[in-house]
C-alpha cells in the first residue's frame, strides 16, 4: 500500500464526522449514484436503439413469389429482407432422396416432411448457418455447398458437413394459392 498524498485541504476519510449523520449521508450518496446510473442508462437507450432496424427497413417485410416461374427440378433465388431465399421445385426423385436423408442427417436431425408444406416445394433461407454466405448448388448430398468454408447441405437443406452446425433456416411463408407463396 502506498501512502496517500497529503492534500492541501483536509480530506481524511477517517476523521470524525462530528454531528454529521454518517448513515444518512451514505444513503444519500448511494441513492444519488444509483439514480445517476439509471439516468445514464435511460439516455443511452435511444442511442443504442437507433442502431436497430428502422421502420422503413422493417416495412419491407413480405415478398410474393410466383411458383410458375420455377421449372421442375430447379431452384431459384429471391431477395427477401436483403437476404436470399431458395425456392426449389423438387422432382419425385429429389423428394425420395430427401426422405431417405431423414435417418442419415445426424448433425441436426429433422424430417424432410416437417421442413416443407408441400413436398415438391422446398423453401429455405439461402444463408449458410455458419457465417452467412450464400451456398451454391452442389456438394455431395444433393443440395448445396458453401463456397466460404465448405459446409454442405442436403436436398432438404439439412446440414451434412461443418463448420455450419444447423440446418438452413425455413422462413415463415404460406401458400396464397397453388402458384404463389408469400414469404414473411
Amino acid at each position: 500500500m502506498s501512502t496517500k498524498p497529503t492534500a492541501p485541504h483536509a480530506t481524511d476519510d477517517d476523521a470524525p464526522l462530528g454531528d454529521v449523520d454518517a448513515e444518512r449521508r451514505a444513503l444519500l450518496v448511494n441513492a444519488t449514484a444509483a439514480f445517476g446510473l439509471a439516468g445514464a442508462a435511460c439516455v443511452a437507450l435511444p442511442f443504442v436503439s437507433s442502431m436497430n432496424p428502422s421502420r422503413s427497413v422493417k416495412a419491407l417485410a413480405t415478398l410474393d413469389v410466383n411458383l410458375n416461374d420455377i421449372p421442375l427440378g430447379e431452384a431459384k433465388t429471391f431477395l427477401w429482407q436483403g437476404k436470399p431465399v431458395f425456392v426449389w421445385h423438387r422432382s419425385e426423385d429429389q423428394i425420395t432422396e430427401a426422405r431417405k436423408g431423414d435417418t442419415t442427417a445426424t448433425m441436426d436431425p429433422a424430417n424432410d416432411a416437417d421442413r416443407v408444406q408441400k413436398a415438391e416445394w422446398l423453401v429455405v433461407m439461402g444463408v449458410c448457418t455458419h457465417l452467412g454466405c450464400v451456398p451454391m448448388r452442389g456438394g455431395e448430398y444433393g443440395g448445396w455447398r458453401c463456397p466460404c468454408h465448405g459446409s454442405q447441405f442436403d436436398d432438404s437443406g439439412r446440414v451434412r458437413q461443418g463448420p455450419a452446425g444447423t440446418n438452413l433456416e425455413i422462413p415463415p411463408y404460406r401458400f396464397l394459392d397453388d402458384a404463389t407463396i408469400r414469404i414473411g
Binding site: 443504442v48 442502431m51 436497430n52 432496424p53 428502422s54 427497413v57 429482407q81 436483403g82 437476404k83 457465417l131
Partner: peptide, 23 residues
C-alpha cells in the same frame, strides 16, 4: 452470432437491418 442467446440480435443491431445493407 455465436454469442449465446443475444448473438443473433446483436448482429441485427450491428447491421441495422436483416442483412448487411445501407444502414
Amino acid at each position: 452470432s455465436v454469442i449465446p442467446f443475444v448473438g443473433p440480435d446483436i448482429v441485427v443491431w450491428l447491421w441495422g437491418g436483416y442483412a448487411v445493407g445501407d444502414p
